[in-house]
C-alpha cells in the first residue's frame, strides 16, 4: 500500500484497526500479559502463609529462603526452603523436563515428517483434507482419557504384554515400558503428533514442484534432490513444528502424573505442588519462570542455529 500523507488519527485505517482489535487485545493484556508479569514479580517476593509479602529478594531462585506466618499480627519465620537453582530436587525435575521435551520433540518431528511428506506429495489434492482430518481427530478427543489409555497399553495387562505373552516371546510381563521416561515420551509423542505434522505439511505444500524436476533433470538422485532441495525448503515448517512441540511439552502436567511414576515426574508436578498443596506462590512462580526461561533460551539457540533457513521467510 502507498504511504498516504498523515491525516487525522481518528477515522484513519490505523485507528479502525486498533479499535477493531481492542476487545481481544485488552482481554489478552489484562488476562495474559499482566498475569505473566505478575508471576515474574511474585517470584522475587516473600512467602507469608496465605499472603504475599512485598519484600524483594532473590532467594526463590538462589540460596535459602524463609517463609513467614502471621502469629497474632506479627510476622514470624515459619519455614526455610531452598531456591529453585539451589534445590537438588527442583534442578533434577527441570533438567529432566528439558530432556523429555527434547526427546519428545525429536521423536515427534522425525516420525511426523514422512507422514506430512506422504500427504503432501503422494495423496491426490482432493483427498488431502480428508487425510489431514483423519490425522487431527485423535488430537481433539479427551486428552485425559488418551493418556490413561497409554497407561493401559504400556501396562502389564495391556495389549503389548498380553500379545507377547500369548505368543510365548516373553515369560513375564515387561515392566520397563510404564512409569518411567519411556512412557512419558511415548505418550507425549502421541499427544503432539498433529502439531508436528501440520506445519511441515503446510511448508511442503508451498514448494514449487518444478524445483524438484529441475533437480532431477540436472542429474541429482532422488535422495540428493530431497536433501538439497526439498528439505531446505521445508525447514521453516520443521522449525515451527519443533517449537510448537518443544515449548508446551516442558509444562505438561497430566502425562507425568498418570504414566510417569516417581522417576518420570516433571517440573509441572512441582509447580502444582507449590501452588496447590504447599501454598508457596513465590517459589512456584520462580519455578515457572525458571523453566520458561530455560525453554526460551533453548528455543532461541535453536532458531539461531537454523537462521539461514528462515531468511526471506518472515511472516
Amino acid at each position: 500500500m502507498q504511504s498516504k500523507p498523515k491525516l487525522r488519527f481518528w477515522g484513519s485505517e490505523a485507528a479502525s484497526g486498533l479499535l477493531m482489535i481492542s476487545p481481544t487485545a485488552i482481554y489478552a493484556i489484562l488476562l495474559l500479559a499482566a498475569p505473566l508479569a505478575m508471576i515474574v514479580a511474585y517470584s522475587f517476593m516473600t512467602d507469608g502463609y496465605l499472603q504475599i509479602i512485598p519484600r524483594f529478594q532473590l532467594c526463590n531462585y538462589v540460596g535459602e529462603c524463609h517463609s513467614y506466618k502471621d502469629v497474632n499480627g506479627v510476622l514470624t519465620e515459619a519455614q526455610t526452603y531452598k531456591g529453585v537453582w539451589s534445590d537438588p530436587l527442583a534442578l533434577t525435575l527441570m533438567w529432566r523436563s528439558l530432556l523429555v521435551s527434547m526427546l519428545v520433540t525429536a521423536v515427534t518431528v522425525l516420525l511426523a515428517f514422512p507422514v506430512a511428506y506422504y500427504v503432501s506429495f503422494y495423496v491426490s489434492p482432493s483427498k488431502k483434507s480428508l487425510w489431514l482430518f483423519l490425522i487431527t481427530i485423535p488430537f481433539w478427543t479427551s486428552y485425559l482419557i488418551r493418556v490413561f489409555l497409554w497407561k493401559v497399553i504400556l501396562g502389564t495387562g495391556g495389549p503389548i504384554n498380553y500379545g507377547l505373552l500369548e505368543l510365548g516371546l516373553i515369560q513375564e510381563p515387561i515392566t520397563w515400558l510404564l512409569y518411567n521416561l519411556n512412557s512419558v515420551v511415548i505418550t507425549l509423542a502421541h499427544a503432539y503428533a498433529p502439531f508436528a505434522i501440520l506445519p511441515i505439511f503446510v511448508s511442503l505444500e508451498k514448494i514449487d514442484r518444478s524445483f524438484l524436476e529441475a533437480g532431477r533433470d540436472l542429474g541429482e538422485s532422488p535422495f540428493m534432490t530431497f536433501w538439497r532441495v526439498t528439505l531446505p525448503l521445508a525447514m521453516p515448517g520443521v522449525i515451527s513444528s519443533v517449537l510448537i512441540v518443544f515449548i508446551p511439552t516442558i509444562g505438561d502436567y497430566v502425562t507425568p502424573s498418570l504414566v510417569g511414576g516417581p522417576e518420570g515426574k516433571m517440573v509441572a508436578n512441582l509447580v502444582e505442588l507449590n501452588y496447590k498443596k504447599l501454598d508457596n506462590y513465590p517459589l512456584g512462580s520462580a519455578l515457572a519462570v525458571s523453566s520458561m526461561a530455560l525453554v526460551m533460551a533453548v528455543s532461541l539457540l535453536f532458531l539461531f542455529m537454523n537462521r539461514r533457513f528462515l531468511k526471506g521467510n518472515k511472516r
Binding site: I21, T24, A25, A28, I29, L31, L32, A33, A34, P35, L36, M38, I39, Y42, L243, I244, I247, P248, T249, I250, G251, D252, Y253, A268, V271, E272, Y275, Y281, G284, S285, A288, M292
Partner: peptide, 23 residues
C-alpha cells in the same frame, strides 16, 4: 498484539493457569 493474543497456543497451559490464579 497478534503475537500476544496467539501466545496461549504455544505456552504451557500450567504457566497460563498459575499466572491467572495469582492475579
Amino acid at each position: 498484539l497478534m503475537g500476544l493474543i496467539m501466545l496461549p497456543l504455544v505456552m504451557p497451559d500450567i504457566i497460563l493457569a498459575v499466572a491467572l490464579l495469582t492475579v
